[in-house]
């Protein structure tokens, strides 16, 4: 498992808005994002950056404390130690006050055309 230095999420919100200041958790520890641009209003894009500097056994985007957050898409870019950054694209999902989104994906295995 690589050491995750920083990661950036570009979250496009769907119909229902998300929290003003979403949090993430790494290995069950909730943390604020270090940088935040945009908003989680319907149709808007929120760009947030986390700097966990740690080994992510679990990395979650914490769901809203109330209501439902419709996420249309997430582009997650990971910058791990001694590796080039890589990006994962996630599709639509909804979060509520009882759910968190898994946002940790290791670098996809390379598949070769043979």
């Amino acid at each position: 498992m690589p050491r995750l230095n920083t990661f950036t999420l570009e979250i496009k919100t769907g119909e229902n808005a998300g929290p003003e200041r979403p949090q993430y958790s790494i290995n069950s520890f909730p943390l604020d994002f270090d940088e935040s641009q945009g908003s989680a209003a319907p149709g808007a894009v929120l760009k947030v950056t986390g700097t966990p500097q740690s080994f992510p056994h679990t990395l979650l985007l914490i769901g809203p404390s109330e209501g439902c957050w419709d996420i249309e898409s997430v582009h997650a870019t990971y910058d791990c130690a001694d590796e080039d950054p890589y990006t994962i694209h996630l599709g639509a999902v909804s979060l509520d006050d009882n759910s968190d989104l898994n946002i940790w994906y290791e670098r996809p295995a390379t598949a070769f055309d043979v």
């Binding site: 694209h89 599709g91 759910s99 989104l101 898994n102 055309d113």
Partner: peptide
Amino acid sequence: REVVYAPVIMSEDEQSAYSEEVRVKARVEG
């Protein structure tokens, strides 16, 4: 709490279109 997994979207170069030529991809396991 529940951990939700969103669908992972493939990039265009990973998608495989059906063609006359058989397309084979190889992936070495971890």
